[in-house]
């Protein structure tokens, strides 16, 4: 009966200070139900302190056929990587 429930993408913030990360999707009739479903499906082991849900159809994806045009030019630009810095041991989440 409810096979037509729309899909929502779920983003979880693991703790304050971090950004929300995409973790998966849920089916739900509306945003409120999507938050509850996401809570039950993705945060039952204390994975998060905040949830976002976004209608999946609101997401525009890049075209796999354009993969080469979009991403390959970055391959030979090593100078864009900050590899000359040493990261201090006590800096997490980089």
């Amino acid at each position: 009966m409810n096979r037509n429930w729309p899909l929502w993408e779920v983003f979880v913030r693991a703790k304050n200070g971090l950004s929300h990360r995409h973790v998966g999707s849920v089916h739900a009739a509306d945003a409120r139900m999507a938050i509850e479903a996401a809570r039950d499906v993705y945060t039952r082991r204390m994975e998060g302190v905040s949830l976002w849900v976004v209608p999946s159809n609101a997401i525009t994806a890049s075209d796999p056929k354009e993969h080469a045009d979009l991403f390959e030019p970055a391959e030979d630009k090593v100078y864009r990587h900050p590899t000359f810095y040493a990261i201090p041991d006590n800096v997490k989440n980089i």
Partner: peptide, 12 residues
């Protein structure tokens, strides 16, 4: 349950 999401909610 009617949906996976509800299945998990009821099990929780």
């Amino acid at each position: 349950a009617p949906m996976l999401e509800i299945d998990l909610a009821l099990s929780n």
